[in-house]
Measured scan of single mutants.
Amino acid sequence: ENVVSAPMPGKVLRVLVRVGDRVRVGQGLLVLEAMKMENEIPSPRDGVVKRILVKEGEIVDTGQPLIELG
C-alpha cells in the first residue's frame, strides 16, 4: 500500500512529515480534523515519504489520497 488515503472527510490541520522522511508503521503522518476532533493519521507501513498530496488547511473527502510512500 503506497498511498495513504483519508479515512473520513475533514480538514488537514498539520502535516507531520516531509518528503524524504523515513517513517515507521503507526507513526503519525498528518492530523485531520473531523467533527471538531483531531485525528492523527498513521503510516500503514515502514517506508519513505515520496510525495505529500495535500496542504495544511485543505478540505479532503473520504478516500482522497494524502501521502505517497516509497
Results as ranks from 00 to 15, higher is better:
residue 1 E to W: 01
residue 1 E to R: 00
residue 1 E to S: 01
residue 2 N to L: 15
residue 2 N to D: 14
residue 2 N to P: 12
residue 2 N to I: 07
residue 2 N to K: 08
residue 2 N to W: 11
residue 3 V to R: 08
residue 3 V to W: 02
residue 3 V to H: 08
residue 3 V to L: 13
residue 3 V to I: 06
residue 3 V to P: 07
residue 4 V to R: 00
residue 4 V to Y: 03
residue 5 S to N: 09
residue 5 S to F: 11
residue 5 S to A: 04
residue 5 S to Y: 05
residue 6 A to E: 02
residue 6 A to K: 01
residue 6 A to G: 05
residue 6 A to S: 02
residue 6 A to R: 02
residue 7 P to Q: 13
residue 7 P to D: 05
residue 8 M to F: 11
residue 8 M to G: 15
residue 8 M to Q: 12
residue 8 M to E: 09
residue 8 M to S: 03
residue 8 M to P: 00
residue 9 P to L: 14
residue 9 P to E: 03
residue 9 P to V: 15
residue 9 P to W: 08
residue 9 P to N: 14
residue 9 P to I: 09
residue 10 G to Y: 04
residue 10 G to K: 01
residue 10 G to D: 07
residue 10 G to H: 04
residue 10 G to M: 01
residue 11 K to M: 08
residue 12 V to Y: 02
residue 12 V to S: 12
residue 12 V to T: 11
residue 12 V to A: 03
residue 12 V to L: 06
residue 12 V to G: 01
residue 13 L to I: 13
residue 13 L to K: 12
residue 13 L to T: 04
residue 13 L to W: 11
residue 13 L to G: 03
residue 13 L to Q: 07
residue 14 R to Q: 06
residue 14 R to L: 05
residue 15 V to D: 11
residue 15 V to F: 12
residue 15 V to W: 05
residue 15 V to R: 09
residue 16 L to Y: 15
residue 16 L to H: 14
residue 16 L to Q: 06
residue 17 V to A: 13
residue 17 V to R: 04
residue 17 V to N: 14
residue 18 R to T: 10
residue 18 R to L: 09
residue 18 R to M: 09
residue 18 R to N: 12
residue 18 R to D: 02
residue 18 R to Y: 11
residue 18 R to A: 06
residue 19 V to E: 02
residue 19 V to T: 12
residue 19 V to H: 07
residue 20 G to A: 07
residue 20 G to R: 09
residue 20 G to K: 05
residue 21 D to C: 01
residue 21 D to G: 05
residue 21 D to F: 01
residue 21 D to S: 04
residue 21 D to N: 03
residue 21 D to Y: 01
residue 21 D to W: 01
residue 21 D to V: 02
residue 21 D to R: 01
residue 22 R to M: 15
residue 22 R to G: 14
residue 22 R to W: 12
residue 22 R to K: 11
residue 22 R to I: 06
residue 23 V to P: 15
residue 23 V to N: 06
residue 23 V to K: 07
residue 23 V to F: 06
residue 24 R to E: 12
residue 24 R to C: 01
residue 24 R to S: 09
residue 24 R to P: 13
residue 24 R to W: 09
residue 24 R to K: 05
residue 24 R to V: 12
residue 24 R to F: 10
residue 24 R to M: 15
residue 25 V to I: 15
residue 25 V to S: 14
residue 25 V to Y: 07
residue 25 V to M: 09
residue 25 V to Q: 13
residue 25 V to R: 14
residue 25 V to H: 10
residue 25 V to A: 03
residue 25 V to D: 15
residue 26 G to T: 08
residue 26 G to V: 08
residue 26 G to Y: 14
residue 27 Q to H: 05
residue 27 Q to R: 04
residue 27 Q to F: 03
residue 28 G to I: 08
residue 29 L to A: 02
residue 29 L to E: 00
residue 29 L to G: 01
residue 30 L to C: 00
residue 30 L to N: 02
residue 30 L to H: 04
residue 30 L to I: 09
residue 30 L to E: 01
residue 31 V to W: 13
residue 31 V to E: 07
residue 31 V to I: 10
residue 32 L to E: 14
residue 32 L to V: 09
residue 32 L to S: 07
residue 32 L to N: 03
residue 32 L to T: 08
residue 33 E to A: 02
residue 33 E to S: 07
residue 33 E to N: 15
residue 33 E to K: 13
residue 33 E to I: 08
residue 33 E to Q: 09
residue 33 E to C: 00
residue 33 E to V: 15
residue 33 E to G: 07
residue 34 A to K: 07
residue 34 A to V: 07
residue 34 A to M: 07
residue 34 A to Q: 07
residue 35 M to F: 14
residue 35 M to R: 10
residue 35 M to T: 09
residue 35 M to V: 09
residue 35 M to H: 10
residue 35 M to D: 13
residue 36 K to W: 10
residue 36 K to E: 12
residue 36 K to C: 01
residue 36 K to I: 12
residue 36 K to H: 08
residue 37 M to G: 04
residue 37 M to T: 11
residue 37 M to F: 15
residue 37 M to H: 15
residue 37 M to R: 09
residue 37 M to K: 05
residue 37 M to C: 01
residue 37 M to D: 12
residue 38 E to I: 09
residue 38 E to H: 14
residue 38 E to W: 13
residue 38 E to S: 04
residue 39 N to D: 10
residue 39 N to W: 07
residue 39 N to F: 08
residue 39 N to V: 12
residue 39 N to H: 11
residue 40 E to H: 11
residue 40 E to M: 04
residue 40 E to C: 00
residue 40 E to Q: 05
residue 40 E to D: 03
residue 40 E to G: 15
residue 40 E to S: 14
residue 41 I to F: 13
residue 41 I to D: 00
residue 41 I to Q: 13
residue 41 I to M: 14
residue 42 P to C: 01
residue 42 P to I: 15
residue 42 P to M: 04
residue 43 S to V: 06
residue 43 S to N: 10
residue 43 S to A: 11
residue 43 S to H: 07
residue 43 S to Y: 02
residue 43 S to C: 00
residue 44 P to Q: 07
residue 44 P to K: 15
residue 44 P to S: 15
residue 44 P to W: 03
residue 44 P to Y: 15
residue 44 P to R: 08
residue 45 R to D: 06
residue 45 R to Q: 13
residue 46 D to G: 03
residue 46 D to W: 03
residue 47 G to K: 04
residue 47 G to R: 04
residue 47 G to N: 14
residue 47 G to T: 12
residue 48 V to I: 10
residue 48 V to C: 00
residue 48 V to K: 07
residue 49 V to L: 09
residue 49 V to Q: 01
residue 49 V to R: 00
residue 49 V to A: 09
residue 49 V to M: 02
residue 49 V to D: 00
residue 49 V to C: 00
residue 49 V to T: 03
residue 50 K to A: 08
residue 50 K to P: 11
residue 51 R to E: 12
residue 51 R to D: 14
residue 51 R to L: 08
residue 51 R to T: 13
residue 51 R to V: 12
residue 52 I to N: 03
residue 52 I to F: 08
residue 52 I to K: 05
residue 52 I to E: 15
residue 53 L to Q: 12
residue 53 L to H: 09
residue 53 L to I: 07
residue 53 L to G: 15
residue 53 L to C: 00
residue 54 V to F: 05
residue 54 V to A: 05
residue 54 V to G: 05
residue 54 V to P: 10
residue 54 V to R: 14
residue 54 V to E: 12
residue 54 V to L: 14
residue 54 V to S: 07
residue 55 K to T: 11
residue 56 E to Y: 13
residue 56 E to K: 13
residue 56 E to G: 02
residue 56 E to C: 01
residue 57 G to A: 05
residue 57 G to Y: 13
residue 57 G to P: 04
residue 57 G to R: 10
residue 57 G to I: 10
residue 57 G to E: 05
residue 58 E to M: 04
residue 58 E to Q: 08
residue 59 I to W: 10
residue 60 V to S: 03
residue 60 V to T: 09
residue 60 V to Q: 03
residue 60 V to N: 03
residue 60 V to C: 00
residue 60 V to P: 01
residue 60 V to Y: 12
residue 60 V to E: 01
residue 61 D to L: 15
residue 61 D to C: 01
residue 61 D to Y: 08
residue 61 D to Q: 04
residue 62 T to K: 02
residue 62 T to E: 07
residue 62 T to H: 04
residue 62 T to G: 05
residue 62 T to M: 05
residue 62 T to N: 12
residue 62 T to Q: 06
residue 62 T to I: 10
residue 63 G to T: 02
residue 63 G to E: 09
residue 63 G to Y: 13
residue 63 G to H: 11
residue 64 Q to T: 13
residue 64 Q to C: 00
residue 64 Q to K: 08
residue 64 Q to A: 14
residue 64 Q to G: 02
residue 64 Q to P: 03
residue 64 Q to Y: 07
residue 65 P to W: 07
residue 65 P to A: 05
residue 65 P to D: 13
residue 65 P to C: 01
residue 66 L to A: 13
residue 66 L to S: 11
residue 67 I to V: 06
residue 67 I to D: 00
residue 67 I to E: 07
residue 67 I to H: 05
residue 67 I to P: 00
residue 68 E to H: 00
residue 68 E to A: 03
residue 68 E to M: 02
residue 68 E to N: 05
residue 68 E to Q: 02
residue 69 L to S: 13
residue 69 L to M: 12
residue 69 L to T: 03
residue 70 G to N: 02
residue 70 G to K: 03
residue 70 G to W: 05
residue 70 G to E: 13
residue 70 G to M: 11
residue 70 G to R: 05
